[in-house]
Design a protein around this nucleic acid. Sequence first.
DNA 1: CACTTGACCTGTCCGC
DNA 2: TGCGGACAGGTCAAGT
Length: 289
Amino acid sequence: MPELPEVETVRRGLAGLIIGKTIVSEWHDTAKGFPNTLADVDRFLKGATVTAVRRRAKVLMIDLSTAYSLVIHLKMTGQLVFVGETRFGAGHPNESLVHDLPDNSTRVTLTFDDGSQLFFNDQRKFGWMRLMPTIEIPNIDFMRKVGPEPLDSEFRAEAFAARFARRSRTSIKAALLDQSVVAGVGNIYADESLWGAKVHPRRLVATLSEQDFFALYTELRAVMNLAIEKGGSSNHTYVNAEGKKGSYMDFARVFRREGLPCPRCGTTIEKLRVAGRGTHICPHCQQLL
DNA sequence: CACTTGACCTGTCCGC
DNA sequence: TGCGGACAGGTCAAGT
């Protein structure tokens, strides 16, 4: 589900809601989604206080006072939803956006010392949550190979372009989705940034000019920053830590807009399949050459 | 090694 | 209304 802006939105929400709280109980359903032993849960999770909530690429990390962390990947349909005392009050403006939890998609429930709860829900069960020593997080396979953060102020256009050398013979869309090239890009922001840069998603990486890469770098950062500002994009499954939907989809220029006019030139937006993913383009603005 | 495809799951939507 | 198939904001393991 979530890409970098959605995960960052969840991170910011959670940081304000759970830092300083102590976990008093834990429930989880399957070994696959939560592979830790009960002994580890008892020793390093129960009684632990949340000290920080971090993000790297699309991975969230909840750091604990035990020097362990909960490392979480939401994949396609994962959610982390916090429920405190005031959330379901009658007449609350967001009352209709959330329903009673846990529900049939709930995989993990954490209960804090003040009675509030954090639910990890995941309809498709692709996501995972694991408890591990904080210091070992950089050694997991995903962290070792993941590329730079695209919004890092130190990450410049030249470095962005250079990252693509490893994927020169594939389509630019496949390369953008490759987490080892640049971190955090998924299907929505790949399509949105390619449209912004006027680059056809099927163009081979090797055919992109320096100007194309510069435009793509600029557009990707602009689109991700806007999405974070708008609280991410929402389909029927994505909600932030407070159970609210993001509004970026109201600003999307091509994603899921097939049949509608391109906001730049009016040409009808088309949907294709590129790198095995549904892909949205303006056939006039984005030419194959 | 680089690249593509299928698998992992469940729910929903669309055409018959 | 029921059913089959395609598809869904992501990564891996296998295959060529």
